[in-house]
Design a protein around this nucleic acid. Structure first.
Length: 417
DNA sequence: TCTGGGGTCCTAGGACCC
DNA sequence: TCTGGGGTCCTAGGACCC
């Protein structure tokens, strides 16, 4: 049996912990740059604020309805997430951190007769120790645990915990569940399914295997098995990432190559730092650029390219060089660029690097990078930069509604007091 | 004027091999 | 008139997730 523990309206709930006046009031949290809504309290959902609502279109509505608005505060959310996972680790080490606010637990060590009670206990402990409300869904497969969690969320009388442990309950749940709410069925798939008269999860599992395989590939087929109660998705405990990305939308569009080159360089450096932090190297750098897809009047252009390196590295200098080379290959003059990014792949551990026959990373880099990291951690991130990064500029995000870093910066809190 | 960022996995098609 | 079969690997693009 699997449990899915999911923190309710996570970012909003984090803001509420330290600001009790927000309780029972409509609250939303915005994305980077305050661009759009990415977390909503139940009150905000009821008020008709959709997920992904662009801030500029909803500003008046926020005011009208007295909705409290926050910029995203990842220092706070990341720290609260860690606290929750430390609690869960006391229950079992057999867990998969699925996202910042969701965690799968494998419950095979737990007594089958009291799974519901365990769910309640977990929920209660998290609430007591962090003030974060969660829902717990328990079922024989991960996809069904998702379903159970969804039910726990929708029916308050269940008090946040639902257990699917019989076929009867499973079928009842699937008859109730709308097809678009099934984990793994997104916009395209539900459109196709509804066009064929499939509106409920129960109808999906009645479709023949061959049909699902053909229309939705093995991914769809696996999902069918999972919903039938046959577990095919295991717990993915390994936490090594396959890609690490640093990407941003710009405040406005830019046509100047030098500007974009500077941004790309900084993204590459950030990727290198993320790699060093987790003691990894990479061997492929992907660079991409986009125009503004929302502006239909402008000519659209988007391209990405992979640049392979001769040896695995996590050096700022190597990655910056490589990313700049990639940009040179894809940049086209005359377009208005709105977004760019750098993604590194071919990730491997720093130690036990593969032996390279002809080329070696310059040894100097390793000690240089260690020094840079040390100075930056002492004097603030990005104090020490490469010359190809802009020295005079700091790229500030739009964050008009940022809350204090309650749990990680005590001096800030004391100042407020 | 103003629409996020960071991930995963799969498939199709092309280049290449013998 | 007639032009093989069976592979691998890589990339771009698309679907999905939170």
């Amino acid at each position: 049996m699997y449990a899915l523990v999911d923190i309710n309206n996570f970012y909003v709930s984090c803001e509420r912990i330290f600001n009790p006046t927000l309780r029972n009031r409509p609250v939303v949290v915005l994305s980077n740059n305050d661009g759009c809504v990415i977390s909503r309290s139940n009150e905000a959902k009821k008020a008709g604020i959709p997920m992904g609502a662009p801030t500029f279109k909803y500003k008046e509505k926020f005011q009208e309805l007295g909705i409290q608005v926050f910029s995203s505060n990842y220092a706070l959310y990341g720290d609260m997430s860690n606290r929750v996972y430390r609690i869960l680790q006391n229950y079992t080490l057999n867990l998969e951190v699925y996202s910042i606010d969701e965690c799968f637990l494998n419950l095979h060590d737990f007594s089958r007769h009291s799974l519901g009670a365990y769910g309640k206990k977990i929920r209660q402990e998290i609430l007591q120790k962090t003030l974060l409300p969660t829902c717990v869904g328990i079922a024989p497969t991960k996809a069904l645990a998702k379903v159970a969690n969804h039910i726990a969320k929708k029916f308050p009388e269940l008090k946040g915990v639902y257990l699917i442990d019989t076929d009867e309950k499973r079928l009842k749940a699937l008859k109730w569940l709308n097809i678009e709410d099934v984990w793994g069925i997104g916009r395209q798939m539900s459109k196709k399914l509804k066009a064929n008269g499939v509106h409920k999860a129960s109808q999906f599992i009645e479709l023949p295997d061959e049909y699902i395989r053909k229309q939705f590939s093995v991914v769809g087929l696996r999902l069918k098995k999972e919903l039938e109660g046959i577990s095919v998705l295991g717990l993915e405990e390994i936490q090594t990432k396959k890609h690490i990305a640093t990407t941003r939308s710009f405040d406005t569009t830019y046509t100047d190559k030098e500007y974009i080159k500077e941004r790309i360089t900084t993204f590459a450096v950030t990727c290198a730092q993320k790699l060093r932090k987790q003691k990894s190297t990479c061997q492929v750098v992907t660079v991409f650029i986009y125009t503004n897809r929302f502006n239909e009047k402008q000519d659209q252009y988007s391209r990405s390219i992979n640049v392979s390196m001769p040896y695995p590295t996590n050096s700022d200098i190597e990655l910056a060089k490589c990313a700049q080379k990639g940009l040179d290959l894809i940049f086209k003059q005359g377009y208005h660029y709105k977004k760019a990014g750098v993604i590194v792949g071919g990730i491997a551990p720093e130690h036990g690097k593969q032996f390279v026959l002809f080329e070696e990373e310059p040894v100097k880099h390793r000690t240089l990078m260690q020094t840079i990291d040390r100075l930056n951690s002492k004097y603030g991130t990005q104090k020490l930069k490469l010359a190809s990064q802009a020295l005079d500029k700091t790229w500030k995000m739009n964050q008009e509604h940022l809350s204090p870093n309650y749990t990680t910066k005590w001096n800030e809190i004391l100042e407020i007091r």
